[in-house]
Design a protein around this nucleic acid. Structure first.
Lengths: 143, 143
DNA sequence: TTGCGTGCAAAGGTTTTGCATGGCA
DNA sequence: TGCCATGCAAAACCTTTGCACGCAA
């Protein structure tokens, strides 16, 4: 389970590059598919799903399910292993992904493990909510 | 935005009552439908969806989507705003959704809010990981 | 050549919509 | 009576799976 993660194909490269290029936001399978279709280099949705799934397993990409109708959202998270050691905050409004390194969360991990028998997966787990600036905008502004 | 939210029907009463009775946990549309079917007082899924949608708009019921395949989960929240103290644990292996009410998490909420400026959304946030039994099976058994 | 990668088609699931009927006010 | 509520059927949607073909190694 190391370097040989399969063949190097055009589709694989294209999808990975797309995810990297759009790493500042999250994207849906439809967006990716539409993008490739517009480029003339159409890629089947099945292939997109399969590659995304692998990337999620590898830890390069994060998957979020916001709404059943919207479909899943994916976002490139990078190769860095350090991301395994902390948690992430995802703003529901602007979509920003915040990396949170905090000893409080280590404690949380231990607590949930010892008290509730549940082994948290920090990589997979994402905290949803409102980031500071969006909270300000929401409380101070219009509807 | 007050009393006259439509007619008072058997189905409406039944669904609301069901949500209140099960307010300590989250339910899916399928669960509600199956329950009524078992009672002999079958209610169409369409009706369930429509009432749930209204209740969500009114703010009485919370909706959150864990997984596109599983479908949405609903939970009665009442009129009170302070139902912020419970989170959900989702096992990545068997898929079970655990309802976790724990004062530790209330503390976590306050900490992330005051120290990191992030307002957590407990209804959308789901902790992924391995539940006790799956962890046992994984460490002790086969593949 | 071998075996994974690809993409079409179909199946699986949840959710929504159209429409005729039924029930509340 | 008038109008909303109901529920069946069908559609729309995202996602997964089966299978034959293509392509990387």
């Amino acid at each position: 389970m190391s370097g040989s993660n399969g063949y190097k194909t055009k589709q694989r490269e294209a999808i990975l590059q797309y995810m990297i290029d759009h790493r500042t936001s999250h994207v849906t399978v439809n967006q990716i598919s539409d993008y490739f279709a517009a480029q003339g280099a159409s890629v089947g949705v099945t292939t997109i799903y399969r590659h995304l799934e692998k990337l999620v397993e590898q830890g390069c990409v994060r998957k979020y399910t916001v709404d059943a109708q919207t479909g899943a959202c994916f976002q490139y998270a990078g190769q860095e292993k350090r991301c395994r050691e902390h948690f992430h905050l995802k703003c529901e409004r602007c979509g920003v992904l915040i990396h949170l390194e905090c000893s409080h969360l280590d404690e949380l991990y231990r607590h949930i493990y010892s008290e509730h028998g549940f082994e948290l997966d920090p990589f997979r787990t994402v905290f949803y909510g409102l980031c500071r600036s969006c909270r300000m905008a929401e409380h101070g502004g219009n509807t």
